[in-house]
Amino acid sequence: MAKSALLKSSIAKKYWMALTGLFLCLFLAGHLAGNLQLIFSDALHFNQYALFMTSNPAVKLLSYLTYISILFHAVDGFLLTYQNIKARPIGYAKNNPSKNSSISSRNMAVLGTLILVFIVTHMVNFWAKMHFDENMPLQTITVEAMGQKQELYLTTNEGYMPVAQVAKSYEDATKTGAQSYIANRTEFYNTQAKVKIGEGYKDLHKITVAFFKDAKFGLIATILYVIAMAVLAFHLLHGFSSAFQSLGLNNPNWTPKIKFFGAAFAIIVPILFAIIPVYIHFFLK
């Protein structure tokens, strides 16, 4: 009885919404810290961070937890909404809910669905490119030596590879006689010995900047991103403190503090997220 209650009951669903929601709030804070490097750091450090985030085992575990949380939060949310609609088959001819509840609290499902749409497009635009794109560029720098400009790949062991001497594949290298070639998307190989001599950084920084600075879609992408963050703010405005209520934490001492912190989190985090594409589109040279 007790065990099935913890999975099926209406209160159990609240716990799961609260736990996954709070975990996703933590994820937001971490994700924001990473994103802010687009403003406060340089391309190399951002790409090093991106590599760390896609290769470190502990981070990988956290990322799987995040995927599961998003899915569970969404599925549970849809299920709750479906049941809640069924609980009132005939609606009111006249209803005045603004007198007793906030607009965000009454529209969590709509806000959540919009956020889900955003997450999917966001992952297609950045996450999928980082993980699966065969043509993901590797980070290069341009140096000037003896009056000649030269482009170099940066490598993870703090070395570099001249771009002119690296072929796109082994076949290309044998045709052009290049000294080295790229394999497995990021690895540099010596053509003759066929041994790995270094590894480049996927240039997520370049992809991101190009996305928001795109002549055709950059502005609309920036605007949509800012709108998505506004939606997120309204979702968090109710969601953050609501999670604590669901988990049973409501008392005169803690609740006002939780509500204050929740409101601050709901406003500050999305604003900081939204500043980044605005900065890239309008101010980044």
């Binding site: 099926k8 009951s9 209406s10 049941q83 809640n84 609980a87 007793n100 609290s105 109710h238 669901s246």
Partner: peptide, 13 residues
């Protein structure tokens, strides 16, 4: 739950 009431979403209404 059996009676068919909906789920609480903490709107506070």
């Amino acid at each position: 739950d059996e009676e068919g009431f909906g789920n609480c979403t903490n709107t506070g209404a």
